[in-house]
Amino acid sequence: MTDRNPDILTVEDLTIRFSRYEKGLRKTDLTVINGLSVSVANSELVAVVGSSGSGKSLLAHTLLGILPSNCGASGAIRFLGEPLDNRRIADLRGKRIVLVPQSVTYLDPLKKVGPQVLNDRTDPPSIRAQEKLFEYYGLSPKTAGLYPFELSGGMARRVLLSAAMMETPRLIIADEPTPGLHLSAAKKAMLNFRNFANEGNGVLLITHDLELALETADKIAVFYAGTTVEVAPVGDFRSAATLRHPYTKALWRALPQNGFQPFPGTQPYAGDPIKGCPFAKRCPTVSDACHLDIPQRELRGGLVRCHQAV
């Protein structure tokens, strides 16, 4: 990484805490993301994979500065080499950093889709751009005059994709953009993200769908209980042996084509105080050292948070 060609996005040691009042008005902090690190290089599509409740959406909200007010984030976030503070986020979001949200509820129910995609712009070039995007995503021109409740789930996602592409972003954060899409539409959306990344931009794809991530991503960050347990190039997912963390290996073996093996236990509840590795309780190779602090380290071109990994 040089300054002339910095990573699109680097997140280092991000920690997010909610403060809340428990009974007796005692203020307590609830750590939901702990020591999270992930980066998106030029032309890279990085998938953040984790089950629900692992804190994936909060990462997206942090990057866009839309965390709730009782929520505090600490850590180092850099966008194009420059620190991303709140003021810079406010300038960049919606323009250079765009969000593709999860569902139709992110559209105003009482406003027609067209103006929402256009973000209230009315100039002819923008309208032409919007019409082109609708055509690209197979939405009929009439869609612009529909209200969100008149869209199918798949249409809504394509509308949200169009809204993101209306801008000229360097980074797209896609929060579960594909569930509910037909396979062909999902592939098209993924292809679109891929092409966008290839043009020298970055995509952070937040998903629980490991298979989808494997098809398009360059790098996969595996989330577990609010932290990244492993960041691996997609090629490492060809076999369990090339993977680093026991959780990633367990995920890999749970895929239908790799044996469909379930693994027992559940993810710890966000906010439960965890000492050491959050996966320790479910790990087949757990040892005493797992309950101590485990730093993230580089290993074979990836990152891992496990002292046993080789």
């Binding site: 909200h61 866009l64 500065g65 839309i66 406010a90 300038d91 960049l92 979001r93 919606g94 323009k95 765009v98 969000l99 949200p101 569902s103 509820t105 992110y106 559209l107 105003d108 129910p109 973000n119 209230d120 809204a163």
Partner: peptide
């Protein structure tokens, strides 16, 4: 609502 969150994520200012 989610659509307010999204509007903020798109950089909409408070009064608009």
């Amino acid at each position: 609502e989610d659509y307010i969150l999204y509007a903020r994520a798109r950089g909409q200012r408070l009064w608009p």
